[in-house]
Nucleic acid binder design. Structure first.
Lengths: 228, 228
DNA sequence: TAGATTGTTAATCGATTAACAATC
DNA sequence: TAGATTGTTAATCGATTAACAATC
């Protein structure tokens, strides 16, 4: 097998984990967070699979890309597994973020219930719309975009969020990259170019709506076929 | 092969199309919409694949689940292919929607640039927060939730959108289903139960942020490994 | 016509599922 | 200990890619 790298916690991580695995890890994290909330201590891969509508094999195999987090004959200690998932996904420590765009989506993100428990924190907000600058937004003052470079220099930040109102997404991305950001969460429906050491994650919300539209349509057809 | 159903346009559709195909179809639709906007008339699967970072084979194979939309030696007429994708995804006619939740996310959705061109229209907004009721929201008055059943009876509606502020997502879903809705676009991080003829599409935005977090983390490690 | 590119089949690759020895 | 469930390998399944005849 290819090169191995070892993290602080001695988890052995093969170089290239397929994207699908990471996507499912994020789903596991979400379910585990719920289980902790429900004060459930222990869960087997079989039980978790039933809850999630997947297979026990898949859960065990996915997790074993990163290590052995269960106990034979017992299953998984919920808190321990969540701890490990948080470790893998990088949620243990605070992830600092700046929000570019103080409009409605930005506002919605600031109130998003899932951020805090995963230690994602929006530290500052910027916008280039004069009507929004200096407004208070959930305790943060919306700054002029012109202040972004200075801010990033003084406050090293992990992630930049670009909201759909940012027509000039590329310019914003450039500023973020120059400011030393590591990742960009892009809600603007525009492709941006970044150097290879920067990660961009796109949120194309419209795609999920189109998928829903398709499914509605095909279900209607099915019902007609089945004589419904 | 399994049963076949034939739509108005004589496209032959095998019963069960894998979900991944539909997901990619939505992406194709997005790119084709851009191409039309750029007034590009013709594109080959090779060119489109290069643009999208996928393979020509995959594009051709995906499309051929639904029919033959290209011309040998020429490629695809952009407008024709978009027309067919719209047909498949159910975007040709207006899709009526109601928005449940007049908060910030709802507001953001009303302004979302991709809706109109795909004929998605939010026809009415409802909320149970007295502070929001009767407010004007992009030309629509926010109604009390208590008016939802009567509204749906008088105005047959395809899709209901549940925003994250809806703590009682299940109750909302029940009202929507009783009102004859076909699909639910659920932004609330809560599972809802619906009868089998109803489609639910979840938007778990936090998962995409967790994936970004992972990728940032693993890139940092890679750089360290490579002696960066 | 010759050149290009599709639609479609065959070959490859990877991902999921099943099975079971290891072990708590 | 016996029962349960993991970690992990082997078998299966499906999805992607390559190739090419059909044809514009």
């Amino acid at each position: 097998m290819s090169r191995i790298l070892v993290t602080q916690s001695n988890m052995a991580i093969p170089q290239e984990i397929p994207e699908t695995i990471i996507e499912r890890l994020a789903v596991y994290q979400r379910y585990l967070t719920e289980l902790v909330h429900e004060e459930i201590e222990r869960i087997s891969s079989i039980e978790l699979a039933a809850k999630m509508g997947t297979t026990a094999s898949q859960i065990r195999k996915d997790l074993n890309w990163f290590g052995s987090f269960g106990l034979q004959g017992y299953g998984y200690r919920v808190s321990e597994l969540l701890y490990q998932l948080n470790q893998i996904l990088g949620l243990k420590n605070e992830t600092t973020m700046v929000l570019i765009g103080g409009g409605n989506l930005g506002h919605a993100l600031m109130n998003y219930p899932g951020f805090q428990v995963r230690h994602f924190v929006i530290k500052a907000v910027f916008d280039n719309n004069p009507a929004l600058i200096d407004r208070n937004m959930n305790g943060l003052i919306i700054n002029s975009m012109s202040l972004l470079p200075a801010y990033l220099q003084e406050n090293p930040t992990r992630i930049g969020i670009i909201t759909p109102s940012m027509i000039e997404a590329q310019k914003v991305a450039d500023l973020l990259v120059d400011g030393g950001i590591q990742g960009i969460w892009n809600f603007a429906p525009l492709k941006i170019k970044v150097p290879p050491h920067i990660t961009v994650e796109y949120v194309h919300i419209i795609e999920s709506l189109m998928i829903l539209s398709y499914k509605c349509k095909s279900k209607t057809h099915q019902n007609r076929e089945n004589g419904g």
